[in-house]
Amino acid sequence: MATTLKTQRNLKEEITLTPNGFLFDHVTGLTYTVNETGGLILKHLMEGGTAAEALKAMTGEYDISESMARKDLEEFIEQVRSFGVL
């Protein structure tokens, strides 16, 4: 899978993600809201999970094809990276 979840940041220390999808970046002070799927991906990321594991969690949780899940995952990762969260 092309999408990498690698980041220089210590997300467990530097980010707070609540069950309601509220994300607070401790370093920048910026806040975001993410939907349930975004929250699921970020949770994997914060625990040091791989893209393949996040993808597996998505297809396991939702009634969605692997190709669709992969597209969503790639788009989400690209977006949070552009915000500087990753």
Partner: peptide, 21 residues
């Protein structure tokens, strides 16, 4: 350390949050 979350017209902080950088 604090990041301003809301500013007045004069640019003064009306809301903010502690950060760790």
């Amino acid at each position: 350390p604090m990041r301003k979350l809301r500013l007045t017209e004069k640019g003064k902080a009306w809301a903010g949050v502690t950060i760790k950088d």
